[in-house]
């Protein structure tokens, strides 16, 4: 249900909590607890595109940290932030299962491996950032 809400609205609106609590015969605190537990569920809408950069060990071994820092610096934002023109939200992810072609990133549902600065610039360009 929460996935469906996020698919439709892009985030899980606060207004949904009492509705869900009522439908499922659960307390509002319980619903809030579930939403806040998971990294995927957002309290506010994201940018038009979501860029996830892997921070896990395999990507670190191939310079993933430097890539992530450079990207955030270029965009002038921090983790979980959205660019001022509202196009891209950058989020950390811990492993995309692309560890043999690290470092990895994912723009919306599209994966990218062996990402260097040039490849990242291309991704950001496509996203309109």
């Amino acid at each position: 249900m929460l996935h469906a809400l996020q698919d439709s609205y892009g985030y899980v609106p606060q207004e949904a909590v009492p509705v869900l609590a009522d439908e499922l015969n659960l307390g509002r605190a319980e619903i809030h607890g579930v939403i806040s537990f998971y990294h995927d569920f957002r309290k506010a809408p994201a940018g038009r595109h979501v860029l996830k950069i892997c921070r896990a060990e395999a990507c670190q071994s191939m310079g993933g940290n430097a890539l992530a820092e450079a990207t955030l610096r270029k965009l002038g934002i921090g983790w979980h932030d959205t660019t001022s023109n509202g196009t891209v939200t950058v989020e950390p992810v811990y492993c995309l299962g692309l560890c043999a072609c690290a470092p990895a990133a994912m723009l919306d549902d599209r994966v990218a491996g062996r990402v260097d600065e040039a490849r990242m610039d291309k991704l950001l360009n496509e996203a309109g950032a």
Partner: peptide, 10 residues
Amino acid sequence: EGDSGTFADR
């Protein structure tokens, strides 16, 4: 499969 360095499941 959340472990870094694993992708056999995927």
